[in-house]
């Protein structure tokens, strides 16, 4: 069905092109066969609106035809698909990653659930005990008071009760996912910085 229409269209198109060529190079010969001036005077060609309408219709129907045909081409045999690495394979610290994702999604949904803060708090306490040699109670108090790092984001995240500035709270509202991820990243980086500093001091 499609093939017949296609062949018909092709034949008409070829005939029209041949006609055009004939008119350009031998207008006299064609003129004796076809009423050229009558065709030129017909509304579809002489009136601007008619010309626009006629040519526009042909053009748009061609475009639609191409759009239709291009969709149902057979893609043929495919290459083996690119497979993403199996995500369910356990990786080191995978459970914490899951907690971070859950917290990020909760923040995006406007909920106030945080499954990471307590874990990071105990991590910071452990690191502080190791670095400063203080006891756990002191370390815990310092973390809760936000007095363990120079990073205001990390300090505010682990502190007891929000000590965040209005600007930061607004940012958290506007960009919930990014802000949550950033807090976690900055906090881990602050703990790593504690250990790095200690290592540098000992190296000296």
């Amino acid at each position: 069905m499609t093939d017949r229409r296609r062949r018909l269209g092709g034949a008409v198109g070829a005939a029209a092109v041949v006609l055009a060529a004939g008119l350009f190079f031998a207008p006299g010969a064609i003129g004796s066969v076809l009423p050229v001036s009558a065709i030129a005077r017909s509304t579809a060609l002489s009136a601007a609106a008619g010309r626009v309408l006629a040519l526009g219709c042909v053009g748009v129907s061609c475009l639609l035809w191409i759009a239709r045909v291009s969709g149902d081409e057979d893609p043929g045999p495919t290459l083996p698909p690119l497979s993403a690495p199996t995500a369910d394979e356990p990786v080191v610290g995978g459970d914490l990653d899951g907690d971070v994702e859950a917290t990020v999604e909760a923040a995006a949904a406007g909920a106030d659930r945080d499954e990471v803060r307590s874990e990071l708090r105990s991590l910071a306490v452990d690191a502080l005990v190791h670095v400063d040699g203080c006891d756990r109670t002191t370390a815990r108090r310092r973390v809760e008071a936000g007095e363990w790092t120079d990073d205001p984001v990390a300090a505010a995240y682990l502190a007891d009760g929000s000590t965040e500035s209005l600007r930061r709270r607004l940012a958290a509202r506007l960009r919930p996912r990014r802000t949550t991820r950033r807090r976690v990243d900055r906090t881990i980086a602050a703990v790593e910085a504690l250990l790095d500093e200690r290592e540098r001091e000992r190296g000296r």
Partner: peptide, 18 residues
């Protein structure tokens, strides 16, 4: 002649392409 030729060329090429 040229008007008809131009129109025929346009329509013909369009149909051929399609």
């Amino acid at each position: 002649a040229t008007v008809v030729a131009a129109a025929a060329a346009a329509v013909g090429t369009l149909l051929l392409l399609a």
